[in-house]
Protein backbone atom coordinates (compact mmCIF):
# COMPACT_ATOMS: atom_id res chain seq x y z
CA UNK A 1 0.00 0.00 0.00
CA UNK A 2 2.81 2.34 0.95
CA UNK A 3 4.51 1.61 -2.35
CA UNK A 4 1.29 2.22 -4.23
CA UNK A 5 0.90 5.59 -2.54
CA UNK A 6 4.47 6.42 -3.40
CA UNK A 7 4.04 5.50 -7.02
CA UNK A 8 0.90 7.56 -7.26
CA UNK A 9 2.80 10.51 -5.79
CA UNK A 10 5.64 9.97 -8.29
CA UNK A 11 3.24 9.87 -11.20
CA UNK A 12 1.19 12.88 -10.15
CA UNK A 13 4.23 15.06 -9.36
CA UNK A 14 5.76 13.88 -12.60
CA UNK A 15 2.69 14.78 -14.61
CA UNK A 16 2.68 18.26 -13.08
CA UNK A 17 6.28 18.83 -14.12
CA UNK A 18 5.50 17.17 -17.42
CA UNK A 19 2.68 19.62 -18.12
CA UNK A 20 5.25 22.41 -18.00
CA UNK A 21 7.56 20.53 -20.36
CA UNK A 22 4.56 20.07 -22.61
CA UNK A 23 3.79 23.78 -22.69
CA UNK A 24 7.39 24.64 -23.48
CA UNK A 25 7.52 21.83 -26.04
CA UNK A 26 4.41 23.24 -27.65
CA UNK A 27 6.05 26.64 -27.93
CA UNK A 28 9.02 24.97 -29.66
CA UNK A 29 6.72 23.17 -32.05
CA UNK A 30 4.79 26.31 -33.01
CA UNK A 31 7.92 28.00 -34.32
CA UNK A 32 9.28 24.84 -35.85
CA UNK A 33 6.10 24.09 -37.69
CA UNK A 34 5.87 27.36 -39.50
CA UNK A 35 9.58 28.00 -40.01
CA UNK A 36 11.59 24.83 -39.55
CA UNK A 37 13.63 26.66 -36.91
CA UNK A 38 14.62 25.08 -33.62
CA UNK A 39 14.68 28.10 -31.39
CA UNK A 40 17.31 27.52 -28.73
CA UNK A 41 16.29 30.80 -27.10
CA UNK A 42 12.90 29.30 -26.24
CA UNK A 43 13.96 28.66 -22.65
CA UNK A 44 14.69 32.36 -22.28
CA UNK A 45 11.08 33.19 -23.11
CA UNK A 46 10.08 30.93 -20.24
CA UNK A 47 12.55 32.67 -17.96
CA UNK A 48 11.33 36.09 -19.07
CA UNK A 49 7.76 35.18 -18.23
CA UNK A 50 8.61 34.54 -14.59
CA UNK A 51 11.16 37.30 -14.20
CA UNK A 52 9.00 40.00 -15.76
CA UNK A 53 6.01 39.05 -13.61
CA UNK A 54 8.05 39.40 -10.44
CA UNK A 55 9.47 42.66 -11.74
CA UNK A 56 6.00 44.03 -12.44
CA UNK A 57 4.83 43.09 -8.96
CA UNK A 58 7.86 44.45 -7.12
CA UNK A 59 8.75 47.52 -9.14
CA UNK A 60 5.42 48.61 -10.57
CA UNK A 61 3.28 47.34 -7.69
CA UNK A 62 0.84 45.78 -10.14
CA UNK A 63 -1.69 43.22 -8.90
CA UNK A 64 -0.87 39.62 -9.81
CA UNK A 65 -3.19 39.26 -12.79
CA UNK A 66 -2.13 42.55 -14.34
CA UNK A 67 1.52 41.66 -13.77
CA UNK A 68 1.07 38.34 -15.53
CA UNK A 69 -0.60 39.97 -18.51
CA UNK A 70 2.12 42.61 -18.65
CA UNK A 71 4.84 39.96 -18.47
CA UNK A 72 3.34 37.83 -21.22
CA UNK A 73 2.83 40.91 -23.37
CA UNK A 74 6.38 42.04 -22.68
CA UNK A 75 7.85 38.67 -23.63
CA UNK A 76 5.74 38.63 -26.77
CA UNK A 77 7.20 41.97 -27.80
CA UNK A 78 10.69 40.61 -27.16
CA UNK A 79 9.86 37.59 -29.31
CA UNK A 80 8.71 39.93 -32.05
CA UNK A 81 11.86 42.05 -31.85
CA UNK A 82 13.95 38.91 -31.80
CA UNK A 83 12.40 37.65 -35.01
CA UNK A 84 12.83 41.02 -36.71
CA UNK A 85 16.45 41.54 -35.71
CA UNK A 86 17.92 38.06 -35.70
CA UNK A 87 15.82 35.81 -37.91
CA UNK A 88 14.45 38.09 -40.61
CA UNK A 89 17.81 39.43 -41.90
CA UNK A 90 18.87 35.90 -42.79
CA UNK A 91 17.75 34.62 -46.11
CA UNK A 92 18.12 30.96 -46.99
CA UNK A 93 19.88 30.25 -43.72
CA UNK A 94 21.06 26.73 -43.01
CA UNK A 95 19.51 24.99 -40.00
CA UNK A 96 22.93 25.15 -38.38
CA UNK A 97 23.22 28.92 -38.75
CA UNK A 98 19.78 29.25 -37.17
CA UNK A 99 20.76 27.01 -34.29
CA UNK A 100 23.81 29.18 -33.65
CA UNK A 101 21.92 32.45 -33.96
CA UNK A 102 19.29 31.34 -31.50
CA UNK A 103 21.97 30.08 -29.11
CA UNK A 104 23.66 33.47 -29.41
CA UNK A 105 20.38 35.24 -28.78
CA UNK A 106 19.73 33.12 -25.71
CA UNK A 107 23.14 34.06 -24.30
CA UNK A 108 22.37 37.70 -25.04
CA UNK A 109 18.95 37.67 -23.39
CA UNK A 110 20.30 35.81 -20.38
CA UNK A 111 23.17 38.28 -20.04
CA UNK A 112 20.87 41.29 -20.25
CA UNK A 113 18.53 39.90 -17.61
CA UNK A 114 21.48 39.09 -15.37
CA UNK A 115 22.74 42.65 -15.58
CA UNK A 116 19.42 44.40 -15.31
CA UNK A 117 17.74 42.13 -12.79
CA UNK A 118 20.62 40.60 -10.87
CA UNK A 119 21.71 37.05 -10.23
CA UNK A 120 19.41 36.35 -7.31
CA UNK A 121 16.72 33.73 -7.39
CA UNK A 122 13.33 35.16 -6.53
CA UNK A 123 9.98 33.64 -5.69
CA UNK A 124 6.53 34.56 -6.93
CA UNK A 125 3.65 34.09 -4.48
CA UNK A 126 1.34 31.16 -5.28
CA UNK A 127 -1.83 32.11 -7.16
CA UNK A 128 -4.14 30.56 -4.63
CA UNK A 129 -2.41 29.60 -1.44
CA UNK A 130 -0.08 26.82 -0.39
CA UNK A 131 -2.39 24.36 1.32
CA UNK A 132 -1.76 20.86 0.00
CA UNK A 133 -4.63 18.97 -1.65
CA UNK A 134 -4.89 15.21 -1.41
CA UNK A 135 -5.52 13.24 -4.60
CA UNK A 136 -5.41 9.43 -4.84
CA UNK A 137 -2.97 9.05 -1.96
CA UNK A 138 -0.76 11.81 -3.28
CA UNK A 139 -0.53 15.46 -2.32
CA UNK A 140 -0.60 18.36 -4.72
CA UNK A 141 -0.46 22.11 -4.36
CA UNK A 142 -3.16 24.40 -5.74
CA UNK A 143 -0.52 25.76 -8.09
CA UNK A 144 -0.28 22.33 -9.75
CA UNK A 145 -3.98 22.61 -10.63
CA UNK A 146 -3.26 25.98 -12.22
CA UNK A 147 -0.56 24.33 -14.28
CA UNK A 148 -2.86 21.57 -15.50
CA UNK A 149 -5.64 24.06 -16.19
CA UNK A 150 -3.52 26.48 -18.17
CA UNK A 151 -1.94 23.65 -20.13
CA UNK A 152 -5.33 22.34 -21.18
CA UNK A 153 -6.52 25.83 -22.10
CA UNK A 154 -3.46 26.46 -24.24
CA UNK A 155 -3.83 23.12 -26.03
CA UNK A 156 -7.46 23.76 -26.80
CA UNK A 157 -6.65 27.30 -27.87
CA UNK A 158 -3.88 26.15 -30.19
CA UNK A 159 -6.08 23.47 -31.67
CA UNK A 160 -8.84 25.98 -32.40
CA UNK A 161 -6.42 28.51 -33.80
CA UNK A 162 -4.50 26.21 -36.12
CA UNK A 163 -7.49 24.28 -37.42
CA UNK A 164 -10.31 26.76 -37.41
CA UNK A 165 -8.97 30.20 -38.21
CA UNK A 166 -7.64 31.52 -41.50
CA UNK A 167 -4.36 32.66 -39.96
CA UNK A 168 -3.85 29.33 -38.26
CA UNK A 169 -4.52 27.42 -41.44
CA UNK A 170 -2.17 29.73 -43.33
CA UNK A 171 0.57 29.05 -40.82
CA UNK A 172 0.09 25.34 -41.22
CA UNK A 173 0.24 25.75 -44.95
CA UNK A 174 3.59 27.49 -44.58
CA UNK A 175 4.94 24.57 -42.64
CA UNK A 176 3.88 22.04 -45.27
CA UNK A 177 5.23 23.96 -48.21
CA UNK A 178 6.30 27.60 -47.91
CA UNK A 179 6.54 28.14 -51.65
CA UNK A 180 3.14 26.76 -52.41
CA UNK A 181 1.71 28.80 -49.54
CA UNK A 182 3.34 31.91 -50.95
CA UNK A 183 1.86 31.18 -54.37
CA UNK A 184 -1.66 31.03 -53.03
CA UNK A 185 -1.17 34.41 -51.41
CA UNK A 186 0.01 33.65 -47.87
CA UNK A 187 2.63 36.07 -46.64
CA UNK A 188 5.22 33.63 -45.34
CA UNK A 189 7.23 36.35 -43.62
CA UNK A 190 4.24 37.49 -41.63
CA UNK A 191 3.42 33.93 -40.63
CA UNK A 192 6.97 33.46 -39.36
CA UNK A 193 6.61 36.59 -37.28
CA UNK A 194 3.26 35.38 -36.04
CA UNK A 195 4.69 32.07 -34.96
CA UNK A 196 7.38 33.79 -32.90
CA UNK A 197 4.77 35.97 -31.24
CA UNK A 198 2.51 33.05 -30.31
CA UNK A 199 5.41 30.91 -29.24
CA UNK A 200 6.85 33.63 -27.00
CA UNK A 201 3.44 34.09 -25.42
CA UNK A 202 2.98 30.38 -24.71
CA UNK A 203 6.56 30.03 -23.45
CA UNK A 204 6.28 32.97 -21.11
CA UNK A 205 2.96 31.74 -19.81
CA UNK A 206 4.67 28.49 -18.87
CA UNK A 207 7.31 30.53 -17.09
CA UNK A 208 4.71 32.48 -15.14
CA UNK A 209 2.74 29.53 -13.85
CA UNK A 210 5.74 27.57 -12.60
CA UNK A 211 7.50 30.53 -10.98
CA UNK A 212 5.55 30.13 -7.70
CA UNK A 213 6.65 26.49 -7.46
CA UNK A 214 10.19 26.50 -8.72
CA UNK A 215 11.19 30.14 -8.26
CA UNK A 216 13.01 31.90 -11.00
CA UNK A 217 16.35 33.45 -11.89
CA UNK A 218 18.12 34.64 -15.00
CA UNK A 219 19.51 31.18 -15.73
CA UNK A 220 16.49 28.88 -15.31
CA UNK A 221 15.74 28.90 -19.03
CA UNK A 222 18.47 26.56 -20.22
CA UNK A 223 17.35 23.39 -18.51
CA UNK A 224 13.63 24.06 -18.98
CA UNK A 225 14.24 24.78 -22.66
CA UNK A 226 16.13 21.52 -23.09
CA UNK A 227 13.38 19.52 -21.43
CA UNK A 228 10.75 21.23 -23.54
CA UNK A 229 12.77 20.46 -26.65
CA UNK A 230 12.91 16.85 -25.50
CA UNK A 231 9.14 16.77 -25.12
CA UNK A 232 8.63 18.22 -28.57
CA UNK A 233 10.99 15.70 -30.15
CA UNK A 234 9.25 12.83 -28.38
CA UNK A 235 5.98 14.06 -29.74
CA UNK A 236 7.37 14.25 -33.24
CA UNK A 237 7.88 17.99 -33.33
CA UNK A 238 4.49 19.12 -34.38
CA UNK A 239 1.39 17.10 -33.78
CA UNK A 240 -0.02 19.28 -31.01
CA UNK A 241 -1.29 16.50 -28.81
CA UNK A 242 1.82 14.40 -29.42
CA UNK A 243 4.03 17.07 -27.88
CA UNK A 244 1.76 17.29 -24.87
CA UNK A 245 1.88 13.53 -24.37
CA UNK A 246 5.65 13.67 -24.89
CA UNK A 247 5.98 16.22 -22.10
CA UNK A 248 3.76 14.30 -19.71
CA UNK A 249 5.61 11.06 -20.36
CA UNK A 250 8.97 12.77 -19.89
CA UNK A 251 7.88 14.29 -16.59
CA UNK A 252 6.45 11.02 -15.28
CA UNK A 253 9.54 9.08 -16.34
CA UNK A 254 11.84 11.51 -14.59
CA UNK A 255 9.87 11.37 -11.39
CA UNK A 256 9.50 7.58 -11.43
CA UNK A 257 13.19 7.23 -12.31
CA UNK A 258 14.18 9.46 -9.42
CA UNK A 259 11.91 7.71 -6.96
CA UNK A 260 12.33 4.08 -7.92
CA UNK A 261 15.71 3.76 -9.63
CA UNK A 262 18.21 6.50 -8.89
CA UNK A 263 17.80 10.20 -8.33
CA UNK A 264 21.30 10.91 -9.61
CA UNK A 265 20.69 9.26 -12.95
CA UNK A 266 17.11 10.46 -13.48
CA UNK A 267 18.02 12.90 -16.26
CA UNK A 268 20.21 10.26 -17.85
CA UNK A 269 17.26 7.85 -17.82
CA UNK A 270 15.05 10.44 -19.47
CA UNK A 271 17.60 11.18 -22.16
CA UNK A 272 18.34 7.51 -22.72
CA UNK A 273 14.68 6.88 -23.41
CA UNK A 274 14.67 9.88 -25.70
CA UNK A 275 17.60 8.41 -27.63
CA UNK A 276 15.86 5.06 -27.91
CA UNK A 277 12.76 6.76 -29.25
CA UNK A 278 14.86 8.64 -31.77
CA UNK A 279 16.57 5.45 -32.88
CA UNK A 280 13.46 3.37 -33.15
CA UNK A 281 10.87 5.96 -34.11
CA UNK A 282 12.68 9.08 -35.35
CA UNK A 283 9.38 10.59 -36.44
CA UNK A 284 8.25 10.76 -32.82
CA UNK A 285 6.04 8.51 -30.77
CA UNK A 286 2.71 9.40 -32.29
CA UNK A 287 3.36 10.35 -35.87
CA UNK A 288 3.36 8.35 -39.03
CA UNK A 289 6.63 8.09 -40.94
CA UNK A 290 7.41 10.43 -43.78
CA UNK A 291 9.62 10.02 -46.77
CA UNK A 292 12.35 12.52 -47.47
CA UNK A 293 11.74 15.11 -50.06
CA UNK A 294 14.80 15.44 -52.25
Amino acid sequence: MELLNQVSQFVISGLATGAIYALIGLSFAIIFNSTGIINFAQGEFVMLGGVLTILCINALQLPLLAAICAAVAGTTVIGLVFERLAIRPLKNATPLALIIITIGASILIRGLVMLLWGKDTQALPAFSGNDPISVAGATLLPQHLWIFGVTILVIVGCRLFFHHTISGKAMRACSFNPRAANLVGVSVGRMVLFSFVISAAVGSLAGVIIAPLTMTAYDVGVMLGLKGFCAAIMGGMGSGLGTVLGGLILGALESLGAGLISSGYKDAIAFLILLLILFIRPQGLFKKGETDRV
Binding site: Q9, T17, L224, S255, G259, S263, K266
Partner: peptide, 10 residues
Protein backbone atom coordinates in the same frame (compact mmCIF):
# COMPACT_ATOMS: atom_id res chain seq x y z
CA UNK B 1 18.64 23.12 -11.77
CA UNK B 2 15.93 20.68 -10.70
CA UNK B 3 12.55 22.19 -10.03
CA UNK B 4 10.77 19.41 -8.20
CA UNK B 5 12.12 17.10 -5.48
CA UNK B 6 8.89 15.44 -4.40
CA UNK B 7 10.04 12.10 -5.80
CA UNK B 8 13.08 11.94 -3.55
CA UNK B 9 11.15 13.23 -0.56
CA UNK B 10 8.31 10.77 -1.11
Amino acid sequence: KDTDMTAQLT
